[in-house]
Design a protein around this nucleic acid. Sequence first.
DNA 1: GTTAGCACTCTCAACCTTTAAGTGCTAATG
DNA 2: CATTAGCACTTAAAGGTTGAGAGTGCTAAC
Lengths: 354, 354
Amino acid sequence: MKMSDRKKKILQIVVDEYINTAVPVSSKSITEKHLTDISSATVRNELASLEELGYLTQFHTSGGRVPSPQAYRFYIEELMQKGNLSDKDLDYIEQAFKDKSRDVEHLIKNVTAVISELTDYTSVAVTPHADAETIRSLSLLPCGDGIALLVIMTSERILRDSFIDMPEDMGEDDLEKASKMISELFAGKALSEVRETEEQILADFGQYREVMSEVIEALKSYTRPREEDVVLSGAEKIFNHPEYEDIGNVKNFLTVIASKDKLADIIEGENDEIQINVKIGSSGDKDVPDDCSVVTATYSAGGKNLGTYGVIGPIRMDYPKVITVLENVGKALEELVGGRIKDKKDDDNEQKRR
Amino acid sequence: MKMSDRKKKILQIVVDEYINTAVPVSSKSITEKHLTDISSATVRNELASLEELGYLTQFHTSGGRVPSPQAYRFYIEELMQKGNLSDKDLDYIEQAFKDKSRDVEHLIKNVTAVISELTDYTSVAVTPHADAETIRSLSLLPCGDGIALLVIMTSERILRDSFIDMPEDMGEDDLEKASKMISELFAGKALSEVRETEEQILADFGQYREVMSEVIEALKSYTRPREEDVVLSGAEKIFNHPEYEDIGNVKNFLTVIASKDKLADIIEGENDEIQINVKIGSSGDKDVPDDCSVVTATYSAGGKNLGTYGVIGPIRMDYPKVITVLENVGKALEELVGGRIKDKKDDDNEQKRR
DNA sequence: GTTAGCACTCTCAACCTTTAAGTGCTAATG
DNA sequence: CATTAGCACTTAAAGGTTGAGAGTGCTAAC
């Protein structure tokens, strides 16, 4: 059986309608609101046929129809009409990103907050872990009590501190010396290489073996997503959607949300090539709950990968809205980061002119 | 009316029973399980009297009795019998704290995870913010792109990095110079003093005014609890308690939990003097939801304030268990931190002997 | 002061009934 | 031959009824 234009039109109406109302769509409502020129019986025939094709299901015979995951996928690919954001929403994005660029963590938190607010879904982000970055330098800063702070500078950014236990006989001078040695040793290496050269380094470095081992552990910990790389906003938004009036669903959802590890797995995907990625239901046999959809976008701006941001929510998700928001946030990010870099360059020029 | 010993005994039974079963307690069940030597009618009289005193309430005439917040308070003060943790639980604590002491953040996360696991309630912690600590030194580490990392060492610990925008004409040498100047300027000051001397410092420091202003902003941000100072574990545990079979309650709870600011307010209390603090219902007209209790303990070990840890859950909370767990975790923490310091000293001695 | 006994109240679950919504099918129509 | 009107059929949801069970409050007796 082929998909006639009319079938597509009807399918689109059903999905649109269901997304907006959360109520199974009946033939009558379609003819009343949208296709006033044909009769409900005709629509019924089409609906039955769409059901046979796997696009629609019904919970019970007198319950109207509901789109299947397959229908959502088709809808996103071919039927969906992307809207524009209202001026209010655009303003909101602009305001939110103004002056709040203090550091990466705040930016990320801010981005998820904005996404969550505008879409009304729970927003998650995972920042790129440093795996592929190369080490520029390492510093061990003394901080008393036999503890030093390890600061790692990579090609892309500064990685957050880890604390390292020092042997007590190591004075500040020793520390500085060790710091320089370590830095030289690792400079230019990718973080992902650390694991492989571990044995050799430890062997070569008998003197500071203990410290070295701790440094290596710390470096290794950056090659997988860490808890602080996963950010969540608007967990409470799920209560705004009727599918989560059932306590069981909420529990399910929250249990997933509560584990940052799982979240990282869900959000980090095969998003290397495509800009926006939609996972519907248990499509990608991941840890995504059966009754959830995940829409993510991977952003990069000014040559930097800024991470993957997205939304997790019920399958009956407002895909047009979500995708539009993600796109616009992406643009705003690009402007922010790109713009900043451009500003800097302008400054340079100006200073040179003086 | 006075509280006879029998009344106290009966009240204790009611609270114990209700904590364990979540079912309103009837006179019959009391005489059957606990006070087999008196009749249910006698107990009924006592129950009626306890109700008059404000310790018990009933939802409807034939529904058995339920303790009031006042009853819980009295129970905790006078009636509760603290148990001991099982060997299994003690083992669990010991194992959990082994080798996981990498840094403060991990420790805190770990502590809340343990508390949540053992009590079966949601656990929260807030680390002391640096308000009262004095600054030991400040360092600005260059990290390219006109950005520097601010590392603050206080009397107690190292504060996490903030990124600071640098004027582009500032080379690494300038940065180092500025870093030293700033460090000298602030050394010995309490973080809480920064706010007051702000004007003067900015005036004195015309040359690096912009940078200085950013440094001051960063320092100021540590005088109030920051998001990363609030840690949460086991949010999903609430589903294990029957009061949260109602979606409305869950929503309420989660909305509070979702806001780290609110959480900080709730957890940070007037815990300066007392070790363990119990807030029941809307007792302390804080943001604590009416139907919640919060039990917190403030820990310090080895002279360091390690923060406030606790549990948030339904009013019908297993207070004996929770309090016992908090106490034992406190001991374990003390051993861990105290022990570490002691180890260090032993090391010193040994090294001197050599 | 304590207790047995009983009437009273209230919830809860099971069951039934009604209503409204929506479909599937059939036969008629252009 | 696609479309449609018409109607029987199915089902969920809402409301009402009933009976069982649990627990109390009260009274009178001990």
